[in-house]
Simulated scan of single mutants.
Amino acid sequence: MSADLEHIRQVMREADCLYTEAEVEAAIARLGAQITAEMAETNPVVFCVMNGGLIFAGKLLTHLKFPLESSYLHATRYRNQTSGGDLFWKAKPEVSFMDRHVLIIDDILDEGHTLSAIVDFCKHAGARQVHTAVLIDKDHDRKASADLKADYAGLPCVDRYVFGYGMDYKGYWRNAAGIYAVKGL
C-alpha cells in the first residue's frame, strides 16, 4: 500500500462529520421541492458542474418533478489540489441554452470564483436567466463578491476544508456518505 493511500485513509479516520447522510439527503429533498415550486414552468436546462457536482446533481434531479434537459460542464480551479488557481475549462456546455432558463448545480459555494465564471459564461452565451444550486454554502467573508449567493443552498458550512457527496480531498472521498471536515484544515 502506498504512503499516499494511507494518508488518504487517515484523513477519513480523523475527519469530523459535519453532516450525516440523513441530514444531507433531507437538505437535497428540501431543495428539490423548492426548485420544483419555483422553476417547474420554466423549461430549464440543468447543468451539473463536474466532478464535484456529480453526486449532488444526480440525487437532486430525482427530486425535480418537472420536464427539464440535463447536461454537464467541467470547469475547475483546484485540479486535485487543496487550493484554487485560474479557471480551467475541461468541457464547456454542449446543450444549447439560448434564451432558456439555466440551473447550474455545483457541490459548494466557497469563494465563488468558479461558479461566478460559469454564471457569467452562460449569461454572455444567451441564457435568459441563470439560477444556481449548491449543496454546501461555506460561511466566510472571502466570496468573490459581497453579493454572490446561490439561489438554492442546501446546508451552511463552517470555514474548513470539506469533502464527501462529490467534494474531494486530493481527488479522493467524493464518495463519502456525509459531509466531513479535514482535521487541521
Rank of each mutant, 00 (worst) to 15 (best):
S2C: 12
E6W: 02
I8T: 13
V11D: 02
A15C: 13
A15L: 09
D16S: 10
L18P: 04
T20A: 06
E23V: 02
E25H: 01
Q34P: 03
T36G: 08
M39F: 15
A40R: 14
E41F: 09
V49C: 11
L54H: 03
L54Y: 13
I55H: 00
F56G: 00
G58M: 10
L60W: 03
K65Q: 15
K65P: 05
A75F: 09
Y78A: 00
G85H: 11
D86A: 15
D86K: 15
W89M: 13
K90C: 07
D99L: 08
D99V: 03
L103S: 10
L103H: 06
L103Q: 06
I104M: 12
I105Q: 05
D107F: 05
I108P: 01
I108G: 05
G112C: 12
T114G: 11
I118A: 01
D120S: 14
H124G: 01
A125K: 11
A127P: 09
Q129Y: 02
V130I: 11
T132Q: 05
I136M: 12
R142L: 13
K143M: 05
K143L: 07
S145D: 08
S145Y: 10
D147E: 13
D147I: 06
L148C: 10
D151V: 07
Y152V: 04
A153R: 10
L155D: 00
L155H: 00
V158G: 09
V158Y: 03
D159G: 14
D159E: 11
R160L: 11
F163W: 09
G166R: 04
G166Y: 04
D168E: 07
Y169D: 03
Y169Q: 02
K170M: 09
Y172F: 14
A181M: 07
